[in-house]
């Protein structure tokens, strides 16, 4: 099911790309660069940006750098060579990407960063990011409540090389550490991936069969933990995560995953395109360069409102 939905989303993005290549526009082309198009989160970012750019009359070029700074640099060179009018990028690295963004800006091409920020101000047109701290705090608060403020728990981080994951972990601990009866018995970096999450949970569960809860840095890791606990017949363990993919929604509705925070991937991408469009029209810039979007807390009461990282009140 997960593979099917990823394939469908990727196919939609690919179809959009091929269509955009055919239909030339007077307004020019916006390059959209994300990490990997086979990941539902990044595919949703690309789809959101692509749809909005087209609705505003631009052609699009959707590309993935697979979190490879060198590849990203080549994509920037190509985009500059093709004289795109703007770039939307969820960048490969917060520090190393500064040079690539600077290169495009120097070439007169505005860059809107989405999701991952760069460390330097004044280089990009705008940097739109999720409030990972707020998302982490909201999820941790529910976790504490579901754990009745006590008991052994595990933290599976998403990828400690990613600053967003570090921020989420800090938010978890700022909340949970205020409850001395909650004891963290293990903490492991599950690299943001489902299989790593499952493997980590398998081994931790053997060492700590008494655990009551698992708090996870992202959705795939949480789903990996759920898979591990299900195969061990442990439906008594509370699992929460952050991201808000369709697969997480299915898990929440089934009662396996207890809560998550949906990151507004599509909304960020849409707004990024809007800022580029405004700049291209009359040179207007956003009031502030760094803008945060809240994570929307999701549990069984509102999981039906989420599809492809877009929240629609029903």
């Amino acid at each position: 099911m997960k593979k099917l939905s990823i394939l469908a989303l990727s196919a939609a993005v690919a179809a959009a790309v091929s269509f955009s290549a055919q239909a030339a526009s007077d307004k020019g082309t916006i390059a959209i660069m994300v990490n990997a198009l086979d990941n539902p989160y990044y595919a949703a970012e690309a789809a959101g940006a692509d749809r909005q750019a087209k609705s505003l009359g631009y052609d699009t070029l959707v590309l993935s750098h697979n979190e490879d700074v060198k590849r990203q640099n080549e994509l920037f060179d190509n985009a500059i060579g093709q004289k795109v009018v703007g770039i939307i990028v969820d960048c490969a690295d917060s520090t190393a990407s500064v040079a690539a963004v600077q290169k495009a800006t120097d070439a007169g091409i505005p860059v809107a960063l989405i999701n991952r920020e760069i460390v330097k101000d004044g280089v990009a047109l705008v940097q739109l990011t999720h409030n990972n701290f707020q998302a982490g705090s909201d999820v941790a608060n529910r976790f504490v409540e579901l754990m009745a403020e006590e008991g052994p728990y595990v933290e599976l981080t998403c990828n400690l090389a990613d600053n967003n994951c570090v921020t989420r972990s800090k938010a978890f601990h700022q909340v949970i550490d205020q409850f001395p009866d909650m004891k963290m018995v293990a903490r492991q970096d599950a690299k943001g991936a489902l299989l790593d999450g499952k493997n980590a949970m398998d081994s931790i569960l053997q060492a700590h069969p008494d655990l009551k809860g698992v708090i996870c840095g992202n959705g795939p890791v949480a789903l990996g933990a759920v898979a591990s606990l299900k195969s061990a017949g442990r439906d008594d363990v509370v699992v929460v995560g952050i991201d808000g993919s369709n697969d997480e929604m299915a898990s929440i509705k089934a009662g396996d995953l207890k809560a998550t925070a949906m990151l507004q991937a599509q909304e960020l991408a849409v707004q990024g395109v809007n800022y580029l469009d405004a700049y291209l029209k009359d040179g207007s810039k956003p009031e502030k360069e760094r803008i945060m979007f809240r994570g929307i807390f999701i549990d069984q009461t509102n999981a039906d409102n989420v599809k492809d990282f877009l929240y629609t009140e029903k």
Partner: peptide, 26 residues
């Protein structure tokens, strides 16, 4: 333990932009 950030977020003259860092703002 006080839940939420009402007392931080109601402040009219202090906002995220004064920190530019999610963790420090938290």
């Amino acid at each position: 333990v006080i839940m939420g950030t009402a007392l931080r977020d109601i402040q009219k003259d202090i906002s995220y932009i004064d920190f530019n860092d999610q963790t420090v703002y938290g």
